[in-house]
């Protein structure tokens, strides 16, 4: 199969899975929006009202970090068990496992965009910021999408070998949430702890998105995108490496 043919396969699988999901229940869409909405509501209450974090337009700041964070963690959580769940399909005929996973991630991504428009637009209307910068959002989403894809592919291959990986990752992401500048700006972190932020790759995938939503500085934005792309390409390479190394064992154990 050429890359072109695989892209057709990804498109068809994504369309079919969207169709399948909304046949099951339309309420599924409400669920998709409800989850980030509740996260956002509770966190803005706690950090803005209880802890009184002092930042201008804190709601926009928070949503700029929280939406990509939710997308990333949901994608990983949903994607990691995919190969094990679809093992029968993968064993039964030749289809590139990456095609199946990409369609799942793309499906989640489209959901993410829908919920993001519904949450972000009202917030923007309430603030006095210009809508113009929002045009850069598609660029900011590229590193986020590719990075999430790379992480998810790598983890779902490993999950075939370590079946409790998803459980462990859930725990790790609970810890990472506090070590990633999602609800606080990285400037709040004392100098001697800055390395924790700098070595956290998730940070670089989220940053471009927040930069568009919150900072409105084109120079900072493009630097953030470049760093994000570097990290995303790193994760994609890791996923290719893992696949090449584990391929035969993958089919043997699956």
């Amino acid at each position: 199969m050429s890359l072109n043919e695989e892209l057709i396969q990804i498109r068809e699988l994504t369309l079919a899975s969207i169709k399948s999901r909304y046949r099951k229940t339309w309420a599924g869409f409400i669920w998709v929006i409800l989850n980030p909405l509740l996260m956002f509501g509770v966190q803005s209450l706690v950090f803005k009202k209880f802890l009184k974090l002092d930042l201008p337009d804190y709601f926009l700041f928070l949503i700029g970090g929280l939406l990509p964070w939710i997308f990333l963690t949901t994608t990983i959580q949903m994607g990691t068990p995919v190969f094990v769940n679809l093992s029968q399909l993968l064993r039964s005929f030749k289809i590139n496992p990456m095609v199946i996973l990409s369609s799942q991630v793309l499906d989640g991504f489209l959901n993410f965009i829908a919920s993001f428009i519904l949450i972000l637009l009202p917030l923007y209307l309430l603030s006095d910021r210009s809508f113009l910068s929002l045009l850069l959002i598609p660029i900011a989403l590229v590193p986020l999408f590719l990075g999430s894809l790379g992480i998810t592919i790598t983890l779902s291959i490993l999950n075939v070998f370590f079946r409790d990986l998803n459980f462990v990752m859930g725990f790790i992401f609970n810890l990472l949430f506090f070590l990633t500048p999602v609800f606080y700006p990285k400037e709040f972190v004392p100098h001697e702890y800055q390395w924790m932020i700098n070595f956290n790759p998730i940070n670089y995938l989220i940053d471009p998105f927040r930069s568009v939503i919150y900072q409105n500085d084109i120079g900072i934005f493009f630097i953030a995108v470049l760093k994000g792309m570097a990290v995303a390409i790193g994760f994609i390479s890791l996923s290719f490496y893992t696949w090449r190394r584990r391929r035969n064992e993958f089919y043997r154990i699956l």
């Binding site: 068809e12 699988l13 079919a16 899975s17 169709k19 399948s20 999901r21 046949r23 099951k24 029968q88 399909l89 064993r91 039964s92 005929f93 030749k94």
Partner: peptide
């Protein structure tokens, strides 16, 4: 082209026809 297990569909929620197209 190869088939290793014929008892498989992709989207259990979709009909046989839709699965056939997929």
């Amino acid at each position: 082209r190869a088939i290793f297990d014929s008892g498989t569909g992709i989207m259990p929620e979709l009909t046989g026809r839709e699965n056939a197209y997929l």
